Simulated assay, not measured.
Amino acid sequence: MIGRWIFVRDAALEGPRSRWGRLALAVIVVLALIVLLPLRLVLGLAAPENVSARSVEGSVWDGRIADLNLGPLPLGTVEAGLEPLPLLIGRAQFSVMREGFSAKAYAGGGVSRANGSLALPDGLGGLPVTAISFTDFSAGFAGGTCTQAEGTMGLTLASLGPLLPDAIMLSGKARCEKGALVVPMRGAQGMEQLTLRLTADGRWQADLTLSGLSQVTADALRAGGFDTRPGGIGIATSGTF
């Protein structure tokens, strides 16, 4: 009788209902692993090499990244999470948000719907840039070429000296040009022009031209590293993100 009961029990465990039970358990385990997947692990696999952070906490869907840096661009501490809907078309897209700034970043290099401003305490190369701003800004690269660029980018430059005591604010529309992301910017008076160029390998160039300056002001800036340009003076700088 005991042997027959064991046989019946084993047969029940091997039946269709038991197989469905094991499948359901496996699905639950997989879903739990997905839900609890650490953001740190996914970020390590998906983020470009020039991304660094002090710490990464939380799940891939709802995490926190402390002191996030994209090359020389400090994003600070942000809330970040993988968005599920873009996964349906094979795109790993993250929402990134902090006070005064938000954006969508996706694996492989690219950003969309960036809005807000970020401080640049170390400047931008040889330019005393104090902040960078975005308005509905999007940019993407594929195969080493700029494939998408739209929206507005702006830069704020600190005073260039006692003869130019006011900060300079420039902005312009982004576009793709000869495989690079290019943003030609102008100041409010049109006397300040800056062109920012970024290639897929992270190299950037910034060229600033100032016109309409007095001879005394122009001479002072030339003594500080500016060169003579047609109609004004200028300075160029470059680096790598």
Results as ranks from 00 to 15, higher is better:
114 A>L: 04
152 T>N: 09
9 R>Q: 03
109 G>P: 06
95 S>P: 00
207 D>H: 11
233 I>N: 01
166 D>C: 04
89 I>V: 14
20 W>E: 08
239 G>A: 07
176 C>W: 07
235 I>K: 08
216 V>A: 14
33 L>M: 15
25 L>R: 12
217 T>I: 00
7 F>Q: 12
86 P>H: 03
203 R>E: 09
4 R>N: 10
161 G>N: 02
82 L>R: 02
56 V>T: 14
92 A>M: 08
161 G>K: 00
202 G>S: 12
199 T>D: 12
223 A>D: 15
97 M>Q: 12
100 G>V: 12
52 S>D: 02
24 A>D: 10
108 G>P: 04
117 S>I: 01
234 G>C: 07
83 E>T: 10
196 L>Y: 14
198 L>A: 09
72 P>Q: 13
203 R>N: 11
89 I>C: 02
227 D>H: 06
119 A>T: 10
40 R>A: 13
78 V>K: 02
92 A>C: 01
23 L>M: 13
80 A>F: 01
187 G>F: 06
91 R>W: 02
226 F>A: 03
202 G>V: 06
113 R>N: 11
161 G>M: 01
110 G>Q: 06
137 F>V: 04
114 A>T: 00
198 L>N: 11
29 V>D: 08
88 L>V: 13
195 T>N: 12
151 G>S: 11
228 T>H: 02
88 L>R: 09
169 M>A: 15
78 V>L: 07
183 V>P: 11
205 Q>L: 03
27 V>F: 12
42 V>I: 11
228 T>L: 10
194 L>W: 01
57 E>V: 03
73 L>E: 09
106 Y>H: 14
103 A>H: 00
121 P>T: 05
106 Y>G: 08
19 R>H: 07
72 P>N: 14
30 V>Y: 04
25 L>E: 10
94 F>W: 07
6 I>S: 04
96 V>A: 08
171 S>K: 14
116 G>W: 00
220 A>F: 08
50 N>D: 08
67 D>V: 13
130 T>V: 09
82 L>Q: 05
131 A>H: 06
125 G>N: 02
18 S>L: 05
115 N>P: 04
131 A>L: 02
176 C>Y: 11
67 D>P: 07
127 L>M: 10
111 V>D: 03
95 S>C: 00
108 G>F: 10
152 T>K: 15
